[in-house]
């Protein structure tokens, strides 16, 4: 099994690096063309959230396995300001900046599993999983 990949997210350049690394790892795990794009897009959105709201953080890409299923887990973590109202942040079009407000709800649609844990003043962790379709 492939090893975990960790990427420090500090700037918009790291967003590009993160999604390219995500695509490379997902490709090795057997994901097909449109899933590769879907995964790279979701990684781009959660990495962008780190840069935009926390300034810096980390992304971990880990191969996962469940019975015969292969998958990829993406964990985006930051020690930023946290999200006061997660329900609101998961609504389409809700944004505290000039963005489209689709990052979190959109990533949730793109991936198979999506959880978010956030504490105000402490930080945010987004965990997403996608399984290779058999």
């Amino acid at each position: 099994m492939e090893n975990e990949v960790r990427i420090a997210i500090n700037s918009d350049q790291d967003i590009v690096i993160a999604r390219q690394q995500g695509r490379t790892l997902a490709s090795k795990l057997g994901f097909n063309g449109s899933d590769l794009t879907v995964i790279a897009t979701a990684i781009s959105e959660v990495a962008r959230n780190i840069v935009e709201f926390a300034g810096k953080g980390e992304l971990a890409l880990t191969p996962i396995q469940q019975s015969h299923k292969q998958g990829l887990m993406v964990v985006a973590h930051d020690d930023g300001p946290g999200i006061p109202n997660i329900q609101l942040a998961l609504q389409d079009g809700f944004s505290t900046t000039a963005s489209l407000g689709l990052g979190l709800p959109g990533s949730r649609r793109l991936m198979d599993e999506f959880t978010i844990v956030s504490a105000v003043g402490k930080g945010t962790t987004v965990t997403m999983r996608k399984w290779v379709r058999g």
Binding site: S34, T37, V38, T41, L102, P105, G106, L110
Partner: peptide
């Protein structure tokens, strides 16, 4: 716009 990109954009809501 590539087909996979169009697919992901629509799912994302863009």
């Amino acid at each position: 716009i590539q087909p996979e990109v169009a697919f992901a954009m629509v799912q994302l809501g863009l």
